[in-house]
Amino acid sequence: MDVLVQLILNGIMLGSMYAIISVGLTLIFGIVRVVNFAHGEFLMVGMYAVYLLSLHLGLHPYVSAVPMVLMLFAVGALVQRFIIQPLLGADEHIQIFATVGLSTALINLALLVFGADLYSVQAPGVRQPLSIGGYTVLHAQVVMLASALVLVAGLHLFMQRTPLGRAIRATAQNRNAAQLMGVRVDRIYVIAFGLGAACVGLASALISPLFPVTPTIGTYFVLTAFVVVVLGGMRSMYGAFLGAMIIGIVDSLSGYYIAPDLKEVVYFAIFILILIFKPTGLFGFGRGTE
């Protein structure tokens, strides 16, 4: 029983990490309708930047969150403006290949600049275990969970309450209608892609104390993030959040009760089953076959 509770607790913490990454992916997919295969590499870029800020300016990773969000917003906006936007009218294949190409280029650029070495960010205090009734969580994990909640709540308010948020929602629902209503769709897309990347910026600051950065670190997360997004119904932030929690818990439990090397098999199997039998996602928030 003790183990079960600890595993679930651990799964929730893991889930909050996936949530931040997946919410970004969902934003990009839900609004721009592009699956960003370079999403993990955005994370990698952010983590190297956090490392450099920590090394040269002595910034605590959590302090770097602010510049990271801004920097990745810019990266995302630029990618949308110069790579995705020219391809919006093109075949889906072409868009996918463009982001796959970007991903390959970024991984190898990191290898070129930083080499294959592993860099670890020093973050005093955040790895301290926190004991709650005999169960262990880290300070960093609590911060992660809180951030995930604040992020989803913040984005919710932004989407519901601000004119820009409403314009984004209108564009997501019907691009042509939004355009007729005077919404500048291209600009909305740039902002949406930027926002999605900015979520990863936040994630990079929060994840840096937990994992050392290497050129391929993004690939550790990106497939899981896709699973989460599909589970959550592709378009819904709330779906992505819940999906992330479920995958976190499944990851944790199957690693213990089935076999650690088969946990990916378990959630990929869930992923395939969801895609096939419930393409609207587990909570019916979206439409998978579109």
């Binding site: 595993l7 651990n10 550790y220 997360f221 944790s252 690693g255 213990y256 650690p260 946990k263």
Partner: peptide, 14 residues
């Protein structure tokens, strides 16, 4: 056994 790409080894440790 576990994947070297794991982001969490807590289940193994438990």
């Amino acid at each position: 056994p576990y994947s070297a790409k794991s982001v969490d080894l807590t289940p193994v440790i438990l």
